[in-house]
Amino acid sequence: MMYSEKVMDHFTNPRNVGEIEDASGIGEVGNAKCGDIMKIFLKIEDGIITDAKFNTFGCGAAIATSSMATELIKGKPIEEALKLSNKAVVEALDGLPPVKLHCSVLAEEGVKMALQDYYNKRGEEMPEEYRPRCDGDCSGCGV
């Protein structure tokens, strides 16, 4: 199994590591049993994601996808963040080994979970097609 240079770059120098104290939305996905947990923090102002941070327990791919996913949505309007796909994360990282694709799913779900939290806090409905599907059972995302 070989990681691309991009993956190694985002693993070695992960962007956006940390927490946001007054986060507008927080999402946690995965479980320690399967070895990956991602926690995404979003700061949203006027419909724009002004800051995104993460904490991740997991393998190299889990850290790199967290880093890339937060990079991809930072500064973007919510509408664009909602559309973040795991495929986009994989492409931005110049690919992932097949056994690591579930890590990119985790990153997408983490962002969606944080957005869900944002909508919930505001008492608003999250558009149905973008709602997170993560049920904490990693076997569903395929290895």
Binding site: M1, M8, F11, T12, K33, C34, G35, D36, F57, G58, C59, G60, A61, A62, I63, V99, K100, C138, S139, V143
Partner: peptide, 29 residues
């Protein structure tokens, strides 16, 4: 509090070859 594969990767970057029993190094969950 940490996962084995990321530990191995960082050790490897420092020139140290080791191993782990984590799922991520076994190809299963």
């Amino acid at each position: 509090g940490i996962e084995g594969e990321s530990l191995l990767l960082m050790l490897d970057q420092a020139g140290i070859c080791a191993s782990s029993g984590s799922a991520c190094t076994s190809g299963s969950l």
